[in-house]
């Protein structure tokens, strides 16, 4: 695959959940080597889009292609990792056992598991039961379970919610290191102050993209100095246009 072609390409994606249409004809592409931020309020469809990309979401129409394969297809299951919003780990296993299990599923060793635990700053808690951890520690354990497989595409649903600012900083640096190493990183957030840390932003509102730009260009084009105001500006423009 040439370096410029997108890793993830979403075309005319429509997703219905229950009787509600959550994603309305959404199209975008996500490149390798960058941290792409998926921003939008709760209920805007961020999780649904991420689940469509990892292939666990039933879709009504449209296509999602990842690394040249249909989303969720078998060859992708070693190459794509997904971290859900609520830490999907086993509360009755230790941090070490959790990460070692997910490591073993993709053919990695116990040493790899320990390295991933170090990378998320959970070294001192490695032998603790996951159920006894704080929310942030659970999130980091869940993240280690994904990082350990060294996926080419990392899909992270609100991974920094409720974390200590120092750890948040470390994790964002880690995401940028991964991107610099050529990986594709997609991170969702509902807090605008995190948007500035992304190389590129996708703003989702009510199941539609309302912006796709770099943080700098977004501020410039909306004539605002912070992204929160930029988001508001875009929404007002859209409402005016009706």
């Amino acid at each position: 695959m040439p370096p410029d072609s997108p890793t993830v390409s979403v075309e005319h994606l429509v997703v219905e959940r229950g009787h509600r249409t959550v994603l309305l004809d959404v199209s975008t592409s996500i490149p390798a080597g960058a941290v792409t931020g998926l921003l939008g309020p709760s209920g805007s469809g961020k999780t649904t889009l991420m689940r469509s990309i990892v292939g666990t979401q039933k879709v009504k129409s449209g296509t999602v292609t990842v690394l040249g394969e249909p989303a969720g297809s078998k060859p992708l299951r070693r190459r794509v990792a997904y971290v859900t919003q609520d830490a999907s780990i086993y509360p009755d296993l230790s941090v070490k056992s959790n990460v070692s299990y997910f490591a073993a599923l993709c053919g990695r060793s116990k040493e790899d598991a320990m390295a991933a635990i170090d990378a998320v700053g959970m070294h001192d808690h490695a032998n603790q039961l996951a159920g006894n951890l704080s929310g942030g520690q659970k999130t980091r354990t869940s993240l280690a379970c994904a990082l350990v497989c060294e996926p080419e595409v990392l899909v992270l649903d609100e991974p920094t919610v409720g974390l200590d600012p120092v750890i948040r900083e470390e994790l964002w640096n880690h995401f940028h290191d991964l991107a610099a190493a050529g990986k594709t990183v997609l991170v969702s957030s509902h807090v605008m102050d995190e948007a500035d840390r992304c190389d590129r932003l996708l703003l989702l509102r009510e199941g539609r993209f309302i912006a796709d730009d770099t943080p700098g260009d977004l501020r410039a084009s909306t004539g605002t100095d912070n992204l929160e105001s930029a988001f508001l500006h875009l929404i007002r423009e859209l409402e005016k246009a009706g």
Partner: peptide, 13 residues
């Protein structure tokens, strides 16, 4: 309920 099943479905399992 805990989402580990969904997670496993995104792994080679």
């Amino acid at each position: 309920a805990a989402g580990t099943l969904e997670r496993l479905m995104t792994t080679p399992t």
